[in-house]
């Protein structure tokens, strides 16, 4: 069982520039794996995602060379904030191409006075909607965010 939620997001498009700021970015020279750590903040349009660490997953063109970012995998406590809602979880995967965020692990979505808790929250930023799954519980009265 799951619950659909609406996000206060208007005019979001996955083509907006993505800005990632952090304390440091380390790039493994053998594999090319790039990891942001320390107060990592991702901003795209009105959506902001903060996390302890974010691993960058690159899209590769036919030649296999990296060309642009396909996903951001956030761990170490993740918060996704839109103008009217805030969602917290242990981890999240932000697929930039499709503009979707999948949060998992003790997810808590706070919208104004009501809060929704569950195991997994899938957000479609472009449509401005989401779906909470796994032991969904509604918590009234603030939800302690």
């Amino acid at each position: 069982q799951g619950a659909d939620v609406a996000l206060g997001l208007g005019g979001f498009s996955p083509d907006q520039p993505v800005e990632v700021t952090a304390d440091s970015l380390s790039v493994d020279q053998a594999t090319g794996r790039a990891v942001f750590n320390g107060n990592v903040l991702v901003v795209q349009g009105e959506v902001r995602m903060s996390a302890g660490e974010i691993v960058v997953i690159y899209a590769t063109d036919e030649g296999g060379a990296p060309s642009g970012i396909s996903e951001l995998r956030a761990t170490g406590g993740v918060t996704v904030v839109t103008p009217t809602d805030a969602a917290e979880a242990r981890e999240a995967v932000y697929v930039i191409e499709s503009g979707s965020v999948t949060m998992s692990g003790d997810v808590l979505l706070t919208q104004g006075q009501t809060a929704l808790a569950g195991e997994r929250l899938v957000l479609d930023l472009e449509a401005g909607s989401g779906r909470m799954e796994g032991r969904v519980r509604t918590v009234f009265g603030g939800g302690g965010n």
């Binding site: 996955p14 083509d15 907006q16 520039p17 993505v18 800005e19 990632v20 700021t21 952090a22 304390d23 440091s24 970015l25 380390s26 790039v27 493994d28 020279q29 053998a30 594999t31 942001f36 642009g68 970012i69 930039i96 191409e97």
Partner: peptide, 27 residues
């Protein structure tokens, strides 16, 4: 800074003291 503490002792190029990346999808 280039440092040698990637996984398995691999070398890692670290951008530190505050880093900002701007990615423009679709470009």
């Amino acid at each position: 800074v280039l440092s040698a503490d990637g996984e398995g002792g691999g070398h890692v190029l670290v951008f530190k003291d505050g880093v900002r990346l701007v990615y423009r999808p679709g470009f």
